[in-house]
Structure formats: structure tokens, C-alpha cells
Design a protein around this nucleic acid. Sequence first.
DNA 1: AATGATATATAGATTATCTATATAAGGAGG
DNA 2: CCTCCTTATATAGATAATCTATATATCATT
Lengths: 112, 112
Amino acid sequence: MEKSLLSGSTALLVLKLLEDGPMYGYQMMESLRGRSGNVFELKAGTLYPLLHTLENRGFVESYYEEGGSGRERKYYRLRPEGLEELKRQNVQWQQYRQAMEKILGGAFCETC
Amino acid sequence: MEKSLLSGSTALLVLKLLEDGPMYGYQMMESLRGRSGNVFELKAGTLYPLLHTLENRGFVESYYEEGGSGRERKYYRLRPEGLEELKRQNVQWQQYRQAMEKILGGAFCETC
DNA sequence: AATGATATATAGATTATCTATATAAGGAGG
DNA sequence: CCTCCTTATATAGATAATCTATATATCATT
């Protein structure tokens, strides 16, 4: 897929994943790829710097933990500020999507 | 709106506008702003270089014409190659949108 | 022991947007 | 007439977000 389309929505996607509970970076890449049906191929070089930024802004916090396999991983957990940011970005994305559909003429029902 | 969300979809929007007939640059900015409900605020510094790129790639062609008001404007018309590109980019956007909705959980009906 | 998948990190390149600035024509109001 | 605002196009430089490439280390498999 066109990489530039993803631009601006990666933070939203990561925050959304963390809404369901803590995850570690590599797991997020796999999860996004799987849940999107192989459409999203978020690269490591994009994700890890993004996670550091989200942590610096106070949206997530990290901690090291062994996840059963005996190997230590760096988990990220959503903070209350991150949940607020998730809501804000979700609203913005819905606005953007609806505007796109007004131009492209893709909406078939009112609720979508 | 977040400018980065628009990233990657401006060419699609411009090609879509030209599907209805030739337009000039300033007109496209006004049209996009109006039809999107003031969500899209595509700036001149973004649009004009984009139009030059689309022309260089053979997707559109330009010509000067007086549009009734006596003032000459630079019109752009969609070329067959541009229509093909429009279809390609539309498919890509629908894929992207559907993937986003799989993660965000926003789809309420099958057809949307 | 070697290879490949897992896991995190960072520097540098690429690309697409924006801001700021320049130019010029046309209309409105003083 | 002159000034200001809107219309209209153009480009250079700044900013931001992605990618590629590279580095390191652990674990599983052959």
C-alpha cells in the first residue's frame, strides 16, 4: 500500500491497540499486519521512534517484563492522557474519512 | 485538521475533481474546501506544485482559457492515463479505509 | 555451529506537506 | 485616482513523517 496514506494515522493505530492492554513493539507490528489483513506493514524504523515520542509526550509508559517465554520484552501501557489523545485522534480521523467520502462519493448509508 | 492525515490523498482528490470536467487551480481549492464542509484546506503551496507533477507524469494537461469573466486562467483537464491513476488510487484508499476500520471498529454495515 | 525469526534501536534518505514570499489582475470604496 | 482586499499562479525553504539500512542481541531450528 501507498506509505503516504498511512502518514498521520500510525499514532492513532498504536494508541488504539494499547486500549486493549499493554503490548510490546514487535507484537504491535504483527497485530497491525494481521488485523488489517496484510494492508498495514508498519516498519520497525517507524514504530520504535514513534513509541519513544509517545512516551516523551506522556501518552504511554514502558516497562520491562518477561512474558512467559522467559525472554524480557519492553511493554507499553496506555496512560490516561493517551486515552484522551486516542479519542481526539479518532474524532479527527472520522472527520477526515467523512470529508473524503463526500468528495469520492463512497458512503451508502447514514451511520457510516 | 491534522495536515499529515491528508498526506497521500491530495492527488486522488484533485484527480477526482477533474473527473467532472476541467478546472483551474484556485477553483479546486475552493471546491475541495466547500465539498468537504471546510475540513480540507488545501494550500496553494501544496496544490500548484502537485498540479505540475501530475502534468509531468501525463495524468493531466493544462491550457489557458478565458472563463467568461474576461480573465485568463490555467485550466487542467484529466487525461485517460489520469483516469486510470484515479481508479488505482481510489482502490488503494478504499483498502486503507477498510483496514483502518478493522482496527478502529467503525464499520456498522457491510456495504460501507 | 550456523541460519533465520524475534526484538529493539538509531542515523540518514526520501517525500509530502506547510509557510513565506513574489507577482499580477480585478473589484470595491474613499 | 489610489488603496486595499480577493482572486490567481508560482517557487524556495522549513517541517514532519515515513522509509531503508544498519547495528545489536536472544532464541529456536537444523
